[in-house]
Nucleic acid binder design. Structure first.
Lengths: 326, 326
DNA sequence: ATGAAAGCGCTAACAA
DNA sequence: TTGTTAGCGCTTTCAT
């Protein structure tokens, strides 16, 4: 039925050890190696990775746990991670948690059962706070959101600075009634809010903010309601690409003209932001770099399990488009 | 070091078989089951999935091979597939081929080595034509693109009809100089072109068409060049979401006003299409249904390996927006 | 350089 | 219901 290394050995007239060595590029004479290769071709043999992992005790697999792969930010990061991983001979298991702590716990358990080499993880705040990398049995690199107190390695954006960049830009365009919309499950939302609030405080301005579930629908609803109020902001900072999508839908539904009636600026240079309305002003995250840096940190951590945790902080780039211009 | 079922058995004072049964919800008395669970908690035991797969001879894993997860169509399909799969207790391996036949071959080999239960595969035309599901050793369900002659199960859109829908719509809006842009690597592009050409032929009109690599960049370039020509079309049908993105960038770069100077209609109701310009008229694919149907077909095929191959043809829905209105 | 043999952690006969 | 035992296919000593 299924052909094993034993069948190959038999067909080649060598021992299973020799076949294994030939496969692993170990010390095998050219003559035997040729015989083995012929036998593999003749039998149609394919190594069984489960057996290999069981015996060799390394899975060469990393887990990538994100909230939702439909978010273009995570899609882009995951492509970068996968490309690097496959080049390094590692597989990637991708999981979507929908920002649900129960699912996060479930997938972390799965990662243990898969005996993964390591995990790259965009955790909710709740999980990041209680994460115990020691107990998990594999290294974890957090992306997008960091753990408090440097409990784990992390690759993040300088969220506060980026939010400040957006506020400064809107101020330069003459805005003073600036509101902010943020996600309520991640530390990222909190950090961006902090930067937003600090920048406005420094300017002596109020910093009205709202927090919503991290979905386009929630954002659309929140923005619609907010803009209908008497003291509605004239400019809006939106904390991520998903929320920005919802905000933009609200703007369209209300028939508002950007930037005349409302200035809009947000996070994530998703491909559509350049095409919507007059183009949306956004903070571009270095998504490829985030993926690469996370993989690199994971590999470093594997080599030096004891070194102290690090946080790589990357800088966002302000992309100015029509939605925020005076 | 790593705790195995043996350690649990020892701690619980039972045999390894009893632990295994307790884990598999086999016949175990409540008393022993409690002891086992206590021992698992005490030891922090986690089953080793590699060992389980090796011994049980089923991986409970399905492979999902797409061209590029950054394409929102595949992102959406993959989410649907994963949700169904995880509910059915299966894990998913996701691979990106970038429409590269070498990568396709490599990942199919990987699937064999993982001893996957089955594969859902968006193949290039080249690979679909030579696909031999028998030799692979696992069932394959093609998505988005079918194999000629029904060589494998498939879930596809009625591409020709959908393209016809777009042409009819543009005709109704009074257009007669209608051009089409299609991808050059997939059967999907070919089918959409066929439907496009047939619909225009029936109307007694010319059907100028161009074929490009399936990237936004190639589309942008092709559209820019085409619209600069003397006999440029006044309406454009674009074969998928990625190409549509490129086309839209070209439109913006040229400063064209939709739909006054150019009518635009295409495939894939990606979230941005409602926000770009006056909103883009598109064919919406039932992405969730595609994912679900593919998983369902895979499971059916596993139960009935011998039944003849089937092709599930789903219907696209025309979503009319401003980009194509007279 | 090659082979014999042990055993990774688990499930599935088979016995009891 | 429970325990004993034989492998699943592979890598890795340990000999030779």
């Amino acid at each position: 039925m299924t052909v094993s290394i034993k069948d190959v050995a038999l067909a080649a007239g060598v021992s299973v050890a020799t076949v294994s060595r030939a496969l692993a590029k170990g010390p095998v004479s050219a003559a035997l190696k040729a015989k083995v290769e012929a036998a593999i071709a003749a039998t149609g043999y394919r190594p069984n990775l489960s057996a290999r992992r069981l015996r060799s005790r390394h899975s060469d697999t990393i887990g990538l746990i994100v909230s939702d792969i439909r978010n273009p930010f995570f899609t882009a990061v995951s492509r970068a991670v996968e490309d690097v991983a496959y080049q390094a001979g590692m597989r990637v298991i991708l999981c979507n948690t929908d920002e649900n702590p129960d699912k996060e716990a479930m997938y972390l358990r799965l990662m243990q059962e898969e005996r993964v080499t390591g995990v790259i993880f965009a955790a909710t705040r709740a999980t990041a706070e209680t994460l115990d990398a020691e107990a998990l049995g594999f290294p974890v690199v957090l992306i997008d959101r960091a753990a408090p107190g440097g409990a784990a390695d992390a690759v993040v954006l300088d969220n506060a600075a980026a939010a400040g960049l957006l506020v400064s830009h809107l101020r330069e365009q003459g805005h003073s009634r600036i509101g902010g919309l943020f996600g309520n499950t991640s530390s990222t939302g909190a950090e961006r809010h902090a930067g937003f609030a600090a920048a406005l405080a420094q300017a002596g301005l109020a910093a009205p903010a709202r927090f919503v579930a991290p979905t386009a629908e929630a954002a659309q609803q929140a923005v619609s309601a907010w803009l209908a109020e008497a003291e509605a902001p004239r400019a809006l900072v939106i904390s991520n690409g998903l929320l920005l999508l919802g905000a933009m839908r609200a703007v369209r539904a209300l028939g508002l003209e950007l930037p005349r009636q409302l200035a809009l600026a947000g996070f994530d240079n998703d491909s559509w932001t350049e095409l919507a309305g007059p183009g949306l002003t956004v903070i571009e995250q270095p998504v490829d770099e985030i993926g690469r840096a996370a993989m690199a940190m994971l590999l470093e951590r594997l080599e030096q399990p004891q070194r102290s945790t690090r946080k790589v902080v990357l800088t966002g780039r302000l992309v100015v488009r029509g939605s925020s211009l005076a």
